[in-house]
């Protein structure tokens, strides 16, 4: 990179971030969640607890916000001013739900701040969290605008899974001890297993070959898991998910979507912060 290059392409370097830093991705795992379909049943959250050995912290610690729900279903009561008859009526509209799991941002704010590089970007486009490397400075969580990182404030393994409940632990991943940060991994153990099978059978990983625990469990199939690589790199195979993203005219690497059709409901949470999340939500449409 000579000085001349820099001067010629100054605006390119200045805005370089919009193209992302790393390009040779093998996959870009992502999600799409249709909030029209979400009924707020929390089955995804429960599935996540079962799949990922999440500690059940108990009522008192939950009340202190020390719980470990990698996937939380956020509940918002509709704004009273949505309808004319305010307080008495808005409960009849019910609540809105927003299932939030790690957004696996392409420009993740948690990554640069970790002092020991315990969280980093994998060639699969995931934010990996290396439990063994984590020293628990908790800076990553502070710098996550979605607040989707959870910290082991205690050693939970004795209280959360008293025998024989320890037999139900998923052997494919660890039980974390006190003092480390953890978060949604998009069920990285399933990704790993599927990739190993594909490699063993000398073939490419197929779309829909496996899915995450939340997507598998969702009774209304509101959650779709898949590979977004074709949105990022031209010439890659389309998946169900990338078709969905294309259909909603949501693109990666944008702080603002320029939609041809404004009726398309797809959006990403807080994308204006340039975190470039890989989870697309489909806005809920409701009667007023």
């Amino acid at each position: 990179m000579s000085l001349q290059n820099i001067l010629q392409d100054w605006s390119k370097y200045r805005k370089g971030n919009e193209e992302g830093g790393f390009h040779d991705y093998e996959h870009l795992w992502g999600l799409a969640i249709d909030l029209n379909k979400c009924i707020g049943c929390n089955a995804c959250s429960v599935a996540c607890y079962a799949e990922n050995n999440l500690a059940v912290v108990g009522k008192d610690k939950f009340a202190k916000h020390q719980e470990m729900h990698w996937l939380r279903v956020e509940r918002y009561w509709d704004e009273p001013d949505l309808g004319e008859q305010a307080v008495s009526d808005y409960q009849s509209h019910g609540a809105s739900f927003l299932p939030m799991m790690c957004q696996q941002c392409m420009a993740a704010t948690c990554e640069p701040v970790c002092p020991v590089a315990a969280t980093y970007h994998t060639p699969d486009g995931l934010n990996a969290q290396v439990y063994n490397r984590c020293i628990g400075s908790r800076y990553c969580s502070n710098n996550c605008p979605y607040r989707l990182r959870y910290f082991n404030f205690y050693s939970y393994y004795e209280d959360s899974w008293p025998a024989p409940l320890n037999m139900q632990l998923n052997p494919d991943l660890t039980v974390r001890d006190k003092g480390v940060m953890e978060k949604c991994t998009f069920c990285v153990q399933r990704i790993r297993a599927a990739k190993d099978v594909a490699k063993h059978e000398h073939r490419e990983l197929q779309d829909g070959e496996f899915t995450t625990a939340c997507a598998q469990t969702c009774p209304t199939q509101a959650i779709v898991f898949g590979d977004l690589l074709s949105l990022h790199t031209a010439g890659k195979a389309e998946s169900t998910l990338s078709t969905l993203w294309r259909d909603q005219q949501v693109e990666l690497g944008r702080t603002e979507q320029h939609k041809q059709n404004p009726d398309k409901r797809g959006y990403r949470v807080l994308e204006g912060l340039n975190t470039d999340p890989k989870v697309m939500y489909l806005e809920r449409v409701r009667e007023v």
């Binding site: 916000h65 020390q66 719980e67 628990g136 969580s141 910290f151 404030f153």
Partner: peptide, 15 residues
């Protein structure tokens, strides 16, 4: 010995 739990720190308030 116990972990950071008794400090009342929690997931929005990591610091």
């Amino acid at each position: 010995n116990v972990g950071l739990g008794p400090t009342n720190l929690n997931w929005p308030h990591m610091w």
